[in-house]
Amino acid sequence: MMWIVSSLVVWAAGSWVNYRLANGAFSATRLVKLAVPFLFGVTIIAVWEGLVRGLSVPHVILPPPSAIAVRFAASLDILWVDFVQTFIKGAMSGYIIGCGAAFVIAVLIDRSPFLQRGLLPVGNFIAALPIVGTAPILVMWFGFDWQSKAAVVVAMVFFPMLVNTVQGLAATDKMQRDLMATYSASYWQTLIKLRLPAAMPAVFNGLKIATTLALIGAIVAEFFGSPIKGMGFRISTEVGKLGLDMVWAEITVAALAGSAFYGAVALIEKGVTFWHPSQRG
């Protein structure tokens, strides 16, 4: 009972503080803008802990955050091995291959308007399909190890990246291209000095979408078969053993890795496209 009451109190107090902060005089400052979501997150975790303990929810249904944290700290070595297998080997290599190939092909088909008109609708169509479904096929082709995960990731990131890059390469307007022509710039000079820089906002949009897709692909592909390590493998086996604290620890790792990956790409974007209106203060 104590736990339920105190979690309700924490909830009320957190909401009240947030309400005051959001409607107070300093609501537009950077600090408050960070503090409010942070407080909200802490409140949710505190209420979760309190309710799980107060209502004595069995750990096999929902473990309290403290148990997850303990499990996380106790199995850092397993989590690290899984992280390397799924993220570094599977997701990252697939991400680099897939995005790289899509970028190169986009630059190539950019020379032919005919191919562009054909590939863009087809690419858009394929990007909307449940490509995760190719996972069982690719696992069959490339074996259980990380190569098949990388292949799934390649299949998932390729078309979103292709479509975005092609759109980006079309982003320059006629005046700019005419200017390059009056400089008597060759195709390659125009490409490198004008069109690729102008394409960067769209390219990074594709790269950012692909970060999430890469992790999803790598994890789901492991549900179809994996060596005895990897985040998807651990999640599916621990769920079978009802070791939910371990599952939540893996999910924490996945969430952290996903956010960090996205954040890193966004940071590079900020450096590369500093001139774009969306990046100015």
């Binding site: 096999v60 992790l215 999803i216 985040m231 939910l244 969430a255 996903g258 996205y262």
Partner: peptide, 15 residues
């Protein structure tokens, strides 16, 4: 949106 939410799917099903 940056998190592979799908990772929790098996857990939801089994729980």
């Amino acid at each position: 949106q940056t998190i592979p939410i799908i990772a929790i799917a098996p857990m939801i099903i089994v729980v």
